[in-house]
Design a protein around this nucleic acid. Structure first.
Lengths: 341, 341
DNA sequence: TTGTAGGCGTTATCAA
DNA sequence: TTGATAACGCCTACAA
């Protein structure tokens, strides 16, 4: 079966293409009768308007582009879940791309999205992105752009984030209140803003509570920050500090779980000998033994909110209104479970 | 900045649009000199060809559509990971949609993809899909279609799957060989083929080893089959069968982990009192306590392979070759860890 | 070697 | 109330 066009409907009905087009779009200057006939025929022929042709005319693709560092992370899949559901409800399609934490790829993908003529772009930056010209380019083309989670401070557009610094501060403060003093931090890569912010929150919490900051207690995980990193880093920690350390605050739940695995393999009891605090509230964290304390990071909500902002900006642009960049900070929450007490 | 077109380049250079178009595509009938000039200008003006216009002419969108039941599953995110990476390398964009296990939504999404003019479609069916007219429609439009993981036997197209039946058979046989006799099965929904196949593999293994099949040992999890289901179902199992059951084979690792959580909460020791066998080799399975035995299900490979097949069929179609539907069965593997011994 | 013209499917303007 | 026509940006057969 060939794809059906307006022309074919018009021919079959002996009317003009214009009439068909107008009838299907309920133009007021077409008679009810004609409209019905056309609509019925369109339905029976299984007509689907050609999106590219529509775009060429209207400059609206009803498609948004999304670039994330990696999909196989519980947090990001929640975000995407939120994006897809919100976009679906609003009649937008989503082109999804992974940068695999690679700046060059990220740049290339932005170009592809521009070429494709997406109506807007959502992006969470790769850990290795230090140059933001590709984002500036998006803005020069006047395509709405929203950054989420891994953002760049210097890019002037709307952003959706959590307050990483405060969340980390709260988590570490909780550990301190529970009597821990030698608190290690398994931090993320040096580059990403949220890795930096969580570290700063950690440091600030120590200082505010009269505990001197000891750089030797801070370890950097790989860019993946997965549970293998957690396992390995825990090994290093124990090698370096043996039983002088009494808690660890990690950049992600996966790292925390890896560390707990190491502790369990080496008969170090959690939380008695060492407390553990994760980050994300990945659902697995409730199932570990003992259950993991963590920071609840609202991934689904972040995706939904970012998409909403983007669609608003797209609407604004259509109406000729310019959008004022805003920064939305979603609330986090401490989830206290048995790994720290 | 407005988006740059061939026309603008042509005007700036005082040549025709045709010349520009040909020069950029390295047509042999344009002088080297002109080509250079045009290419430089295009670069300096940041020219990006308009994908919709190209599509309208060439009927090639360089875009594929992917529909999955749900993204927030480790297995599916691995599949998507494979799809995105393969597509990226081949210069294809991916439009991703979630059916949320909803047949109506799935149908609608297929229509959107057709309308958008994707070059091909990859789909894993929702648990509630019993009618396949929407897939037939795709084929009537002569759009290459590949089913993966959750397939429909009656749709005549290429498929990429694992041998669920054999995998389940092997897992249960392993439990039997280890001396287990009262083996429960936490199965998936009644509808999906792989849920059926895993159940059949379970049953066959029992029968082949002289263990009579006891329907009261088979429990149906919700369509999500997540760890909460596992927890609840384990509770039911213990209520119904107390200590007469000595093993459980689950539809997913998440269900297994949920069940283990229940056992641990109720001081039922794994594997001494009850052995557990999961399905997927979700990376978390190696971190549980004790580590979970499971079936390794190659998600990334499945995504990659399905995409490859699809791109081949797209190529074939362009060359006027018709593709013969094939069924690719990817190998699975038992991963034996401490939850069964 | 370069340019003209027509068309992909749709929409919008204007005339009939 | 309907239809002819041009245009969106690009590609290509054909003419110059």
């Amino acid at each position: 079966m060939k794809t059906v066009t307006l022309k074919q409907i018009a021919e079959k009905l002996g009317v003009s293409v214009t009439t068909v087009s107008k009838a299907l779009k309920d133009y007021p200057d077409i008679s009810e009768n004609t409209k019905q006939i056309v609509k019925n025929m369109a339905k029976s022929m299984n007509f689907v308007p050609n999106a590219s042709a529509v775009y060429l005319r209207t400059q609206e693709s009803k498609t948004i582009g999304v670039v994330i560092p990696a999909l196989v992370h519980h947090f990001f899949s929640k975000v995407i879940d939120g994006i897809l559901n919100k976009a679906e409800k609003s009649g937008y399609l989503v082109i999804l791309m992974q940068s695999n934490e690679n700046y060059e790829l990220e740049k290339k993908q932005i170009d592809l999205l521009l070429k494709k003529g997406v109506d807007g772009i959502l992006i969470s930056l790769s850990n290795n992105t230090n140059n933001f010209d590709h984002l500036k380019r998006v803005q020069e083309y006047n395509i709405p752009l929203i950054l989420f989670d891994k953002i760049a401070k210097t890019v002037n557009c709307s952003k959706v984030v959590i307050d990483d610094r405060k969340a980390a501060y709260d988590a570490v403060t909780h550990l301190i209140n529970k009597g821990h003093r030698r608190i290690a931090h398994f931090r993320g890569d040096l580059n990403p803003q949220n890795s930096i912010d969580r570290f700063l929150g950690y440091k600030k919490a120590l200082e505010d509570h009269g505990i001197s900051y000891d750089p030797s207690l801070v370890y950097i995980c790989n860019k993946n920050s997965d549970f293998k990193d957690g396992y390995k880093t825990a090994a290093k920690l124990i090698e370096d500090h043996q039983n002088t350390v009494d808690a660890v605050f990690t950049i992600t739940d996966a790292v925390a779980i890896g560390a707990m695995k190491y502790f369990s393999d080496h008969s170090i009891t959690v939380p008695d000998e060492i407390a553990v605090f994760g980050f994300s509230n990945w659902f697995m964290s409730s199932v570990t033994n003992p259950p993991l304390s963590t920071v609840k990071q609202p991934g689904y909500k972040m995706g939904k909110k970012a998409t909403q902002l983007l669609l608003n900006e797209i609407e604004n642009k259509k109406s000729g209104i310019s959008s004022i960049p805003q920064k939305i900070i979603l609330p986090t929450e401490l989830i206290i479970r048995a790994t720290c007490s």
